[in-house]
Write a protein that binds this DNA or RNA. Structure first.
Lengths: 213, 213
DNA sequence: TAGCTTTTGAGAGCTACTCTCATTTCATGG
DNA sequence: CCATGAAATGAGAGTAGCTCTCAAAAGCTA
């Protein structure tokens, strides 16, 4: 799920001789652009950072930046994990309630990311709160993930993946999960994100705890 | 709620002498810009329509267009209803389950819009499906509405409006409702949008119908 | 090393959007 | 009804994201 996923490729460094020099260079360039972007944003903020500056620091031309990332927001947000998560989701036992499957997959993704680049996850959430364009792009990319979710839900519920019910349900999950990282960032990154996700999934599964019976 | 709300001001035409000439002109200009935009988009599509063209057809300068609408997307999406809906929501009896309140308010807004400008509602949904930027802006504006929703939910649930639970719940409703208009547009605007909203609210309230017990 | 393919850089161009400043247009009190 | 102040407009320059084209550079293959 996007806002809480790794920035750096899981196949990260370029020290793998089985790939041709060309491929290795491409990976390096990608990383250079991202690193430069993160650094500049940390120094100057998102809006004040231009693609030209990013290109300069990454030692490539602006054209190349756009060749690697379709938009400036994508430099911050792209992750290579989503496809993996979908597989993982599909691999869960068919009898398992989808909320549990989701819980499992989310935790997996979060753990993986935390281990690899605990900074990125925070930076993203933070930018999501501050920069509308980034938040928008985040929602976009999450709703793409939502489309995949549909199928998993459909399989388990017996409903059609493109039925109104399944679509609404999937998108409501996405919306709820999105809000978690917003909440986390707005409250100074307090607490363990994974616990927050758990709580959110409880709400999404069972509704709000009824406090006045 | 945004994507299904009126394009034209509920206080529409400029034939109200109690307002000064200045105010009446402003309303007229707003309408001229919106009308021009809708027409041009119908002719050429969203991306092919430039702000310059809009300005020309509306007989104002491009500067003026941006003075009235912060972004091009806003020309299509802005509505003056959201505040009204929040009031309406708050006016519902305190004992009523919020889902019913929401249902009521949504139906109200939809009926109002249908009566005033049945075209706009379709155009918006359609653009939401086709143009990522518009969809993004739609989501943005809906999540603003979601912030208001929080308070109504908080009042009725006894939880804090800014608690994780309430925020997640509110945003999941928003996500679900957003998906309705996407679904509607993608399926050729078949069926009554209000019925679809009703069905969506059922799902959001009770979860998916369990078809294999 | 020669020839082919892919990647890159340079640069022109478009458009959304911002800002400034002079001009016009409305409002108002004498 | 006109003079003065306030608000809205237009013109224009400027920025930045993003696209496209084309020629040079770099890696690949034989």
């Amino acid at each position: 799920m996007n806002p809480m996923t790794a920035a750096r490729s899981p196949l990260s460094p370029a020290d793998r001789p089985q790939l041709g020099l060309r491929e290795r260079k491409k990976i390096k360039t990608r990383e250079a652009i991202r690193t430069a972007t993160y650094a500049l944003i940390k120094e100057q903020g998102y809006d004040a950072t231009t693609v030209e500056q990013i290109a300069e620091r990454a030692e490539v031309s602006p054209s190349t930046v756009f060749r690697y990332f379709p938009t400036k927001e994508d430099i911050v947000l792209t992750d290579e994990y989503d496809p993996l998560m979908v597989e993982e989701l599909r691999a869960r036992p068919a009898g398992e309630p989808w909320i549990d499957s989701l819980r499992h997959v989310m935790r997996l993704a979060l753990d993986g990311t935390m281990a690899e680049d605990p900074e990125a996850i925070r930076v993203r959430a933070h930018l999501g709160v501050q920069v509308p364009a980034v938040r928008a792009r985040m929602l976009e990319s999450m709703s793409e993930t939502g489309r995949m979710l549909r199928e998993a839900i459909a399989e388990r519920s017996g409903l059609a993946a493109d039925s109104l019910q399944v679509r609404v349900y999937a998108m409501s999950l996405i919306g709820g999960l999105m809000e978690v990282s917003m909440y986390w960032a707005e409250n100074g990154f307090e607490g363990d994100l994974r616990d927050l996700v758990d709580q959110a999934l409880d709400v999404l599964d069972q509704g709000l705890p009824t406090k006045k019976p």
